[in-house]
Every structure is written in structure tokens, then in C-alpha cells.
């Protein structure tokens, strides 16, 4: 089948999409945006987090056809050209990246959190990030990055 959607501001029409295919697969394999990751494909890890019409979702759990005519923003769409988004910069500065497989999903999730709440408290940060697994960092420097980005935004 055919799916038309806007990804990171660019309109795309994709043919030959399988009916049961996920938005994640479509983004990675058809649109050529492998930034969104595929650590579990069952909604548990958040490495595939993208915006679907302004809502942060697991792209692995959205059927590609459900994204027809929608606007998708992926991690690749957050920076302004060479200029990193403040959330991205905070991840780099705080040392919140190790292997980096969780990073794209976390960057989008934190971007979403800070868009909704400018000054999240500890429990709030933990709750908001509970759907993003990271196996390397123990999360501590990721929390640092959230606080750094929040501080910068204020």
C-alpha cells in the first residue's frame, strides 16, 4: 500500500508498504532515517520514540498506515542544521551518552518533557523517562542532562 506523510518537514509518499509494517520500519528502511532505534520493537525501551502529530510515541507500535497524512518528527529533525537543539547539547555536555543506542529516543522524550514542563522535579523526571531504557549509563547523567537542558531553557 501507499503511505503519504510528512517527516521532519518533508512530504513523503512511500509505495509498497506492508499492511502490518510499523512506522519505525517505514522510517528506518523506506524513508532512510535510521536515527530512531529498534532495541525491542515491543514498546518497552523507547529507543524508537518520535513525535507523531506533536505526541511522543513509540514508532514501533504505530502501524505505518496509521501515520497517513500525519506529521512525524524524528531525532534527525530536532537540530537546526549544524546547531544542536539544547537538549542534544545537554546530552553531550553532561556525558549522558555511552553506546548511544538509547540516546535518540531519550532525546525526543526529554524534548517532549521540557516542552510540557519547564522545571521538572526529580520524581517527575523519573516518571517521564520510565519508558526509555538505557543499559549503559544507569540514567544518572541522563538526569543531569535533563536538568542542564531545563536550566538552559529557563
Amino acid at each position: 500500500m501507499r503511505v503519504d506523510l510528512e517527516v521532519n518537514g518533508v512530504r513523503r509518499s512511500l509505495d509498497g508498504v506492508r499492511e502490518g509494517e510499523s512506522l519505525l520500519h517505514l522510517l528506518r528502511e523506506r524513508v532512510g532515517l535510521p536515527g530512531s532505534k529498534n532495541a525491542c520493537e515491543q514498546g518497552e525501551c523507547g529507543s524508537c520514540t518520535v513525535y507523531l502529530d506533536e505526541t511522543a510515541v513509540c514508532a514501533c507500535l504505530v502501524a505505518a498506515g496509521q501515520a497517513q497524512d500525519s506529521r512525524v518528527v524524528t531525532v534527525e529533525g530536532l537540530a537546526d542544521g549544524a546547531e544542536l537543539h539544547p537538549v542534544q547539547r545537554a546530552f553531550v555536555e553532561a556525558g549522558a551518552v555511552q553506546c548511544g543506542f538509547c540516546t535518540p529516543g531519550l532525546v525526543v522524550t526529554v524534548h517532549d518533557l521540557l516542552a510540557r514542563t519547564s522545571d521538572p522535579g526529580e520524581a517527575e523526571i523519573r516518571e517521564a523517562l520510565a519508558g526509555n531504557l538505557c543499559r549503559c549509563t544507569g540514567y544518572e547523567k541522563i538526569f543531569d542532562a535533563v536538568r542542564l537542558a531545563a536550566g538552559e531553557a529557563r
Partner: peptide, 9 residues
């Protein structure tokens, strides 16, 4: 239920 991303959908 689940996580923020799950609850959003």
C-alpha cells in the same frame, strides 16, 4: 499503565 509513550497512544 506502561510509560508516557504508551499512555499517549
Amino acid at each position: 499503565i506502561g510509560s508516557a509513550q504508551i499512555r499517549n497512544r
